[in-house]
Every structure is written in structure tokens, then in C-alpha cells.
């Protein structure tokens, strides 16, 4: 643990004000903010000199203690930081779920060409709309196409055999 850097009385008074302004802030954030602001002031003063004019300039750049306190998380708030962004993932629309169900149905009951044709048409419309789950729409289109070809082949072979 490093000792707190010494600062002129003007800056010390500012840090006391900041400490009071942060009373309602998250305790860990309060302690870290105070330490970091102290270091910031000490570093600036080491660069520009520790006279009152330099101290006033440093405090002016740090800004009002109320503004710093307003940027702190209130104590008891569970969210200590912004939530990690996640890639967009919209919920799957019910229409696409039913579309795949219809596609599977038309494939299993390969003798239902109407269902297969409806699947292909519906999946095409959904894909062109640009809405919903495109992976499910493509799956339904593929299954529907297979079912349509299968049922048509079955029908033709039945007619030829008859």
C-alpha cells in the first residue's frame, strides 16, 4: 500500500469536500475515486508547481465535487458498471417456429404436397420480408422443397404405375 501523496491545503480542502459529496456513493467507488483524484492533483502539481495559482488551476480542471459525485454510483446499487454488450439476438418469432413445424410435417407426411407447397411459399415470403429468424426460414424452405419434390415424385410414380 502506498502512502497518500501530500497536497497543498487548498487541494486538501477540496478532497474533504469531495469525500463529503461522495457520502452516498458506493463505498469502494468512493475510496478509489478519492485516491485517484488525490493522485491526479499531486501529479498535476508536480508538473506545474504547488503554489496556490497552480492548485486553483488543477481544481478547476478537476471540476466541482458535486459533478464528480453525480458521476458516481449510489451505494447499494448492484450494477457497478455498464453491462457487457452482447451481439443482437432477437427472440425467434412464433411464425418461424410454426413454419419449421409445417416443413417437418410436410416432409414426414410426404404424401401432403399441399402442405409442402404452402411451406415453400410461406418460407419464401418470410425470407423476402427480412424479418424473423432467417436460419429457421432457410431450414423450412429446404425441408419444404424436399417434401414437395418427394411428394410430386410419389404422385407421378403412382400415376404411371396405375
Amino acid at each position: 500500500m502506498t502512502a497518500s501523496p501530500a497536497v497543498p491545503p487548498l487541494v486538501e480542502a477540496y478532497l474533504d469536500d469531495l469525500d463529503r459529496a461522495l457520502t452516498t456513493a458506493d463505498p469502494r467507488e468512493r475510496a478509489e475515486t478519492l485516491a485517484a483524484v488525490r493522485e491526479h492533483a499531486a501529479e498535476s502539481l508536480a508538473r506545474y508547481g504547488a503554489d496556490d495559482d497552480s492548485a486553483r488551476r488543477v481544481l478547476d480542471e478537476l471540476g466541482p465535487v458535486d459533478a464528480i459525485a453525480a458521476a458516481a454510483t449510489p451505494a447499494g446499487t448492484t450494477t457497478a458498471a455498464p453491462a457487457a454488450p452482447t451481439p443482437d439476438r432477437a427472440p425467434t418469432p412464433a411464425a418461424d417456429v410454426w413454419l419449421v413445424v409445417l416443413a417437418v410435417f410436410s416432409l414426414v407426411t410426404v404424401v401432403a404436397p399441399v402442405a409442402a407447397a404452402a411451406t415453400v411459399a410461406w418460407a419464401t415470403v418470410r425470407l423476402r420480408s427480412g424479418a424473423g429468424n432467417r436460419a429457421m426460414q432457410r431450414l423450412a424452405l429446404g425441408l419444404g422443397a424436399v417434401a414437395l419434390v418427394g411428394s410430386t415424385a410419389l404422385y407421378v410414380s403412382h400415376v404411371l404405375a396405375g
Binding site: 491526479h40 508536480a46 458498471a81
Partner: peptide, 30 residues
Amino acid sequence: TSEGTLYPLLSRLRQQGWVTTTQVASPVGP
């Protein structure tokens, strides 16, 4: 808003695990 408002934000980023901190000796000050 002002330079001081950076520090509560840095504290949150550290608590979130998005940054780490290390104390390093400075040639000009603390």
C-alpha cells in the same frame, strides 16, 4: 463534464473487470 468525473467511471470499469490497475513509480511526482 470535467476531469474529475473520469475517476468514478474508472473505478466502475475496474470493478467490472474491464481494466486492471498497477502502481508504478513516477519520475516527477508520487
